[in-house]
Structure formats: C-alpha cells, structure tokens
C-alpha cells in the first residue's frame, strides 16, 4: 500500500458525505437533516432560557454588585487617604505655627531680658557716676578749703613777718590796715 493510496483512502470518507449531502437529503451533512430541527430548537430554547434565567436572577446582579461595591470601596479608601493627607498637612501647619510662635516668644524674651539688663547696667552706671561725682565734689571742696586755709595761713604768716620786719626796721608797730594794704599791694604785683 503506497503512501498516496493511504492518504487517498483516508481522505475519501471526508469527501464522500459532502458529495452525497450536496445531492439529496439523507445520509449527507447531518446539519441539513431538517427532521432534527424541532428537537434542537426546543432544547436550545430550554437550555438558553435556563442559562439566561440563572444569569439575570443570580449571577449578574451579584457579580455586578460586588464589582460596584469594590469600586465604591476603593473610591472611599481614596477619599479617606485624601482626608488623612489633609489632616497631616493641617498638623504640619499647626506645628509650623507653634514653632514660629515659640521662636517669636523666645526672641521677645531675649530682647526683654537684654533690655532689662541694659537698664540695670545703666542704673548701676548712673549710681557709680553719681558716687564718683559726689566724692569728686567733696574732694574738690576739701582741696578748695585747704587752699583757702593755706592761703589764709600764708597771709597771716606774711602779715606776721611784715609786722616783725616793720618793727625791726622802724620799731613801730604797723596797723593791721597798713599791713593788709601792703600785702594786697604785693599780692597784686605778684
């Protein structure tokens, strides 16, 4: 048996029924046998109708429902996430504000402290200045008094000397007025 013969004999049954079917109804294409149509149509209607009923009554509402539910849930979760984000941003803003506030307060306290310290310092300075000025004035007064005192004593000594000199020279006691005027004349000349 050659290969060709085998293939031909294998293909023969494939071709034969089609050729027969093309002629009259009978053992040809089973699809063309109209006597089977009512049964096929009947069972198609029954089975397709049943499947449609199952789908519309049970499957599709529940499947659609769960898909819808999931979509809602995801949308909700997104909303919630946005809400959380908003809250976090608020908290951050509040924190920033508190921080700025604290900084400002710290600055204020620092400035206040500095000012009060400065005031205290100035006060002390003033006090010290006053004390120094007072003791300076007292010292000056003392110096002036001593100067006056010394001048008076010098004048007295000069008068004494003058009197003594005059007594020695002319043996006459000059009047104090004369001594005074003489001393004044010398003092003016000096």
């Amino acid at each position: 048996m050659s290969l060709v013969a085998i293939l031909v004999s294998a293909a023969a049954p494939a071709a034969a029924p089609v050729v027969e079917g093309a002629g009259e109804a009978g053992p040809g294409l089973p699809q063309m046998d109209a006597s089977t149509y009512p049964s096929q149509l009947f069972w198609l209607a029954v089975t397709f109708g049943f499947l449609y009923w199952i789908m519309t009554s049970f499957v599709l509402p529940r499947l659609g429902g769960v898909i819808e539910e999931r979509r809602d849930r995801i949308a909700d979760d997104f909303d919630q996430a946005a809400e959380f984000k908003r809250k976090a941003e608020e908290a951050e803003a509040a924190y920033e504000a508190a921080l700025a506030d604290a900084k400002a307060r710290a600055r204020a306290i620092a400035a206040e402290t500095r000012e009060s310290l400065n005031e205290e310092l100035a006060e002390l300075q003033r006090e010290a200045d006053a004390r120094v000025a007072a003791s300076l004035a007292a010292a000056e007064a003392r110096i002036a008094a001593m100067k006056e005192d010394a001048a008076a004593k010098v004048r007295e000594a000069a008068a004494e000397v003058t009197r003594a000199v005059v007594e020695a020279l002319i043996d006459e006691t000059p009047t104090p007025e004369a001594v005074d005027s003489a001393l004044n004349g010398v003092a003016k000349a000096a």
């Binding site: 009512p38 049964s39 096929q40 069972w43 089975t47 397709f48 049943f50 499947l51």
Partner: peptide
C-alpha cells in the same frame, strides 16, 4: 419530535457547566 438527543445533552452540559 423533541427527543432528547446528543445535541440536547451537550446543550444541557454546556449550560450546567457554565451555570
């Protein structure tokens, strides 16, 4: 004639499987 045929059987199987 609405006999239960092999075709009907496979329609039933198809619907049973998918349902």
């Amino acid at each position: 004639d609405i006999s239960l045929t092999n075709s009907a059987l496979w329609m039933i199987i198809a619907v049973a499987v998918s349902a």
